[in-house]
Amino acid sequence: MKKQLEMVVEKVNEIALDTIEMTLSNVHAAKTAQPGQFLHLQVEGHALRRPISIADIDRENNFLTVLFKKLGDGTKRLAMYRPGMTIDALGPSGNGFSYEPSMKTVLLIGGGIGIPPLYNLGKQLKNKGIKVIAVLGYQSKEHVFYEEKFNELGETIVVTNDGSYGSRGFVTNVLDQVADFDYYFSCGPVPMLKAVTKALHGHQGYISLEERMGCGIGACFACVIPTDTEGGYRKICKDGPVFAVNEVIL
């Protein structure tokens, strides 16, 4: 039987403007988590849990790292949790990224708080000997995080919307600078994913979607995405959040 997990807060750091990196410990979660999965965290005093994607997995120390942005009351409250406190979590939930050892070069394209789930994926890809190229988009300089970490995985191109750091514009503006790759993995806001899938039409890839969730386990139908125009759908929390690009309609 599945059950709620009690996760202990180990570390909390503000690593960029309004961007919190939180390390949580739990044996079950750390042993089973896959890149692209999420934790559904119960923030005290809130009616709905917050789905937060897993940025890094440390199976040796039983740590999971999550990154989130302080956007509303729930995430602001979550940012106030301190080491030693516990958080009730469901998960690791959903289907994460899948990759084949036969992949040679993989392009990671992340936008804003969609970047974190690509980090552990990139680490695993690199460990398998797969070449990693990353394109990371942020609003502006003060929002940039994990640039060094991605640099360690492979060539990393940073873009900011206002041009205050790296290239100016959107992630799609620099895709023509990227060398050949055989698969791409992308996570970010829906407008970015739309632009990315359009720009990379013909390439095989996987996208990870974000949506407001209710139950987070597939029962309430809050977070669905159409698969066709005939009423077909997938549940983002349970079937996703990662989908093959041609599996869903953005």
Partner: peptide, 24 residues
């Protein structure tokens, strides 16, 4: 069969939530 409404379909409120699934 009914597909239901577009997303977002849920929003948190003070001590509760709003939903508009649309009988999917």
């Amino acid at each position: 069969v009914r597909y239901g409404n577009n997303t977002p379909r849920v929003a948190e409120t003070s001590s509760g939530m709003l939903n508009a699934i649309g009988l999917q």
